[in-house]
Structures are given as C-alpha cells and as structure tokens.
Design a protein around this nucleic acid. Sequence first.
DNA 1: GTGAAAGCGCTAACAA
DNA 2: TTGTTAGCGCTTTCAC
Lengths: 337, 337
Amino acid sequence: MVTLAEVAQHAGVSASTVSYVLSGKRSISATTRQRVEQSIRELGYHPNAGARALASSRSNIIALVIPLRTDMYVPVMMEIAIAVATTARTHGYDVLLLTGEEGPEAVRRVTGSGLADAMILMDVELDDERLPLLRQADQPSVLIGLPADTTGMTCVDLDFTATGALCVEHLAELGHRDIAVIGEAPAVYERHTGFAERTLDGLRSRARELGVRVLHRPCEGGYDALTVTLARVFDERPGTTGFVVQNESAVEPLLALLRQQGRAVPEDVSVVAVCPDQVAVQASVRLTSVAIPAQEMGRRAVEHLLAKLEGRGSEDIVLLAPELVVRASTGPAPAAP
Amino acid sequence: MVTLAEVAQHAGVSASTVSYVLSGKRSISATTRQRVEQSIRELGYHPNAGARALASSRSNIIALVIPLRTDMYVPVMMEIAIAVATTARTHGYDVLLLTGEEGPEAVRRVTGSGLADAMILMDVELDDERLPLLRQADQPSVLIGLPADTTGMTCVDLDFTATGALCVEHLAELGHRDIAVIGEAPAVYERHTGFAERTLDGLRSRARELGVRVLHRPCEGGYDALTVTLARVFDERPGTTGFVVQNESAVEPLLALLRQQGRAVPEDVSVVAVCPDQVAVQASVRLTSVAIPAQEMGRRAVEHLLAKLEGRGSEDIVLLAPELVVRASTGPAPAAP
DNA sequence: GTGAAAGCGCTAACAA
DNA sequence: TTGTTAGCGCTTTCAC
C-alpha cells in the first residue's frame, strides 16, 4: 500500500506538501505540483480514508436512511437513492446506506462514531422518533418528507398539498363535479407518513372552493381490493366522473375495471394519477399525472446538506412545485344524463 | 466527543483494557468488564470509525455497486440492496452505496483508499470491464450475476438456465407445443447482461428435448411495443398457445392485449412469467411465475463475502434453484382446432 | 488479567 | 512557497 510519505519521498518534497497538493488548501508552485502529481500517478497512490477521517474529523460520507418497508413507491425510493449517490459523488462524498431497521439507534451510531458527516432521512413520519436525536446531534441532516414539527429541520419534499389542489383544479376545469380519490393502503395512513394526508387536505380544500364533491377511499393495491373499493364508490356516488389515484398498484387495476364495466376513459370517466412518470406512460391508457420528482428531491437534499456542512445556511423547508402533465386519461365531463 | 481514553480513565483501567473489552480479543475479569461497560454507557461512548479503520486497517464497510440504469428490475435491485444492508448489519458491517456511474474507477478508488473491506457488484455484464481490476485487487468481492469468465470470482445468481427450462417444462406438461418468449428490451440483450441469454438457452435446449417450438421476441415495455410484438408473434406462429414473459413492464400489457383479442387466459393461452412475486400476484390474472429471489441473493452475497474476509474459503459459483409457482395463468393447451 | 507504548497515515498548526 | 511536527483515537505487540 502506497502512503503519502512514500509519495513525498519519491517527489522529493515533504509530506505536508503532498497533502496540500491534494487538498488545494495552500498555493503550490507549478513545478512542485507537477512533480507530486507525477509521483502520485507513478506510484498509484490513493489517500487512506481512515487516516484522513481521523486527522481531519471529516469522513466525506453522507448517510442515507431508506425505509425498510418496500410496500410503496419503490422505484421512487430507488431513484432518490441513486440521485443522492451521484450528486454526492460530484461533490466528493460517498453514501452510506442505512435501512430504517435500526431505528433511532442508527442515528446515534452514525453520529457518535463519526462514520458519516451528515445524514439524509427518507420516509419521515409525521411524528418521527428520530427527530429529537437529530436535533440534539451536531451533525447536519436533511429530511425527505415533512414531519409535523419541522423546528430546526431542513426538509425537502414535493408539495403534496399543492399536488392535491392541482388534481382537483384540472378535473374541475373539465367540468367534473363528483370526484373519488383512490388512496394508499390504509396502513400508509395509519403510519402517518404525512404525504398522503397532505394530498388529501390540498385536494379537499380546493374542492370546497370549487364546489366539487370528494369521496376518499384508501385502498390496498391489486385487483381484488380495487374491485371492492370501486363498487363501493359507485354505490355511494353513482355520479362520479373523476378519479384521483395515489397508489401505484391501484392504477392498472382501476383502468382495467373501469374498462370492464364499460366506462370509457376519458369519455365517461377521467383519471388523474399521482405517480412516477414511467407508470403514467406505461399504463394501458396514458395517464394525466403529477409526477414525484425523485431525482430532484435527491439532488436537492444533498445540496442542502452540503450547504449546511460548509456553514452556508440554507432554507428550512423546500417544497417542490408539482407539475401536472395532461395525457390521455382526462377529458371533459360527460353531460349529465 | 467521548474517547476511549476518557472511558479508561473513568473506569480506572488502561486504554488497552477498554479496547479489549470492546473487541473481546482477550479475556477480561468479570468485574473489570462490568466497570468498563458501565463507563461506556454513562459517558455515551462510541468508538471512532476513522481511528479504528486506521489502526486496524479494517473499515467494516462493504461497498455495494448498483447499476445506474433503472430500466429494469428496479424493485428487485432495491430488494437486493436492502437485503445486503440488513445482512451486513447483523454482522457488524455497514454498506457503502456506489452507482455504476464511476465505472471501473470506483473499484480502484474503494480498493485503494481502504474505504471498504470488500465489494459486491450487481448487474455484472458478460464481459465486464471491472473484472480484471477485481481479480488483481487484494479485496474480496462477490458478483451478483454471472460473467462469461468466472475465473477467480465468486458469483451469486438465480440459475436462469434452469429457470428457462422450468418454464418450458411446465408448459409442455400442459400440452403446449408452440411457445413464444417475450423478452427484455433489445438494449438488455445488446448489453450482454447474461441472464436474458441464459434463460433463453435453458428454455431452448429443454424445448428441443421436449419437441416444443420456441419463438423469441425481445420487447420494450409498454402497450405500444407489445401490440406490435404480439401481432408479429401470432402472424408468424398462429398456433402459439404458451407465453413466457421475462420483462416486468410487458406483463400487464400482454394480459390486456390477449384479453382484448378475445384470447382467454388460461383457457386459450397460458402465460408464465419470470418476475418478482409482487408483480405476479398483483397482475390482472394471478400469474404462474418463477420469482427472482432477491432477498436471498443479497443475503448470500454478503455471507460469501464475509466468509472470504475471514479467510474461510467459499464456493465459487452459487446458482440458486428456481421455483415455479403455479397460479391462475396456466392451464391445459386447448385441443387443436 | 492488565498496562505501557509504539505506531496506523494523514492534516494542519507553526516555523521558516 | 515549503518543511517540521504534534497529534487525531484506536489497536496491538510486548512486558509484567
């Protein structure tokens, strides 16, 4: 294993010079720099991460805590994780992958050991038990998601309230007056992950303003669950002409069942989805949808984290504006019979 | 920040004693151990990761290289990653998440810096450019996937050859004599990721033995692509009664199009999928399928890696046996018209 | 069963 | 612009 001392000797300079060539923290003459860089290349030198961390008390590692549950938004999680990793790399950081399994203990362990310089938490719950630890830790952190109490926290999330509002607005403009919301599995609401409620809040309050009636039904994914849910919806509100779906695994079943019942999309019924674009374009009817901007969420989370690490302040709450893309699943409400 | 020295002082012992209490590498009297453990708890001590890595030249970190492409098997990738992370934790290791983006350079960087003690590579291509580096590195590694040349490598993968064979066997037993294979996107085959070809090989050679005709069509996901592909299949082989699908995003479109064409599943046409169980059970017809055992792959990869780290040898190639689960999408071939 | 002490490879004052 | 040097916190030999 090649050490910095060996590089120094090979280049005929002192260790600190090599160190400074690497860090750029003081000016080096062009010739010296070149000799050192030459030696580094010739010897195939790579700085030792442990030694560096010890001496500088910076590991150049960001911890990313992903949810253990894989019942929801898996591709979105993955996309965020990848965005976090690639963004971090462009800034010289690596990413440590932690699962939610360890719970609050993970925060303590990483914070205490100096394994990572900072952390990003995904799938934050409204009243997350890790938040107190995070607040008292001296490590910067960013949440992806929005807890109930955001005091002292930096959060990045899609503006789900605006998302909900946007969905109704679109349907209202098209003349729909009776809307059903097919939501996430009941477990998601019980877990109080926040985003589902926020979508609903935004949707309902805008609906009230626009004079649109809303029926909300949480729903497990899959055909069986949706068959029941859909029957109940039309039973209770036969005049329903608009659907908002926020549940990936309900999308295709919904479309299939509507088709099966002879309700044409978008002629008889309009559907707006809150889902990744890939799902929207690969569905059997190309879906008008609001996408979850996973990449941007990951990127922004890292950038805010780095800002904090470098002592630059940064906004506390970053809510990304939703964008509704109109595709083939929404159209004017049918004339009342 | 609490150091080992402070714990030692607080407990009235030497630093090395504390270290040995932590590592268990030499016997400690019960009373001393208790005093030390007490101090550790009282002071809230966490060993410093950098110092530990420097002194022991072991980081207790495993690097996991995930593919950058998210065009395929995303949930499977995620599941493997989570399994790797949780398994690693139970053995005292953390996981560093690297994207394929850096390419071979990532291997060099991690190997050279001592950032990680070992690495796991996912989505290995048949002729992967990282393999030579891996072979010459002194770090243990495990591949998830099977390259063309496995010399000196430890690999974990589903036995896709057996998977292909299993699919035809099932269809052949049901009397199907003309089978179409809806494969991954052409790009997947061009990339030579191996698994797609291996499935096909196993499928074809078993088909030959059983006197079954096979037509293979790579296919992009989605409805449009599948519409074209399906038309071509029935054009070329009107007598096709069995399908094997190895492409998540072709599953639902296939079922929908067959239904639309008035071909009932499984009465007129049988479908076997190679896909995650979740996809199989949530499809509009519950699919007979061979699952990709993502969790087990992740777990096994870590276990083999640890075996190598501890100097225990370990098998070179681990091919997990496929299991076909019969659900509602396969049945006896219809009598010839 | 326990302690003393020499590093591990690097960073960052402090000096020149 | 460059060199000297004192640690960073821990592991591990060597000695008792």
